[in-house]
């Protein structure tokens, strides 16, 4: 199963490499990884999406918790949550296909953020599945470049991940 694990990390040099190293050292899978500072300047927040059975995911959270630089770990997929990913995608777009990109982007609530006579660049925000669906809808033939941010997530309701 796919899991979204959020981690509060000491904002220290080398902290990120401990997390990344742990995943490769223990043969855990990483689908995507994002990391950025938080409102508390001593902390970074890292989100990793991974795929594994319950035993593996249990080990992932336990091993993450053991890292001294890791302050808190939560598996967002255990509860109600929202996930978002940002994608920028550049198409070779001319003739009739130009209109189709525009139409599909509208349906997906994407925005066209750059235009040249032969290209369109679309920005899209949503779950990873939605981004996948957008790519599928337009076919891969005319895609020039895809940039995805990786998943970020947050719990619904009152639940927060903080100190």
């Amino acid at each position: 199963m796919r899991h979204i694990i959020s981690v509060l990390l000491e904002n220290e040099p080398g902290a990120l490499s401990r997390v990344v190293g742990l995943f490769s050292q223990r043969n855990f899978n990483i689908e995507s990884l994002t990391v950025a500072p938080t409102d508390d300047e001593t902390l970074s927040r890292l989100t990793v999406t991974t795929v594994g059975d319950d035993r593996v995911v249990e080990q992932i959270t336990k091993q993450l918790n053991k890292l001294i630089d890791v302050v808190k770990v939560v598996d967002l997929t255990e509860g109600e949550h929202i996930e978002r990913e940002l994608m920028m995608i550049k198409f070779k777009a001319s003739g009739a296909f130009r209109a189709e990109v525009k139409r599909t982007a509208d349906i997906f609530r994407g925005q066209i953020i750059d235009i040249t006579p032969n290209t369109y660049t679309v920005q899209l925000v949503g779950s990873s599945a939605k981004l996948d669906a957008f790519i599928e809808a337009l076919g891969t033939g005319s895609i020039m470049e895809v940039v995805r941010s990786g998943v970020s997530g947050i719990a619904r309701g009152e639940k927060v991940l903080s100190l």
């Binding site: 035993r55 249990e58 080990q59 336990k62 918790n65 053991k66």
Partner: peptide, 11 residues
């Protein structure tokens, strides 16, 4: 004392 040792290889 280490939760990661528990149920790692044997449940």
């Amino acid at each position: 004392v280490d939760p990661a040792s528990i149920s790692k290889t044997i449940r």
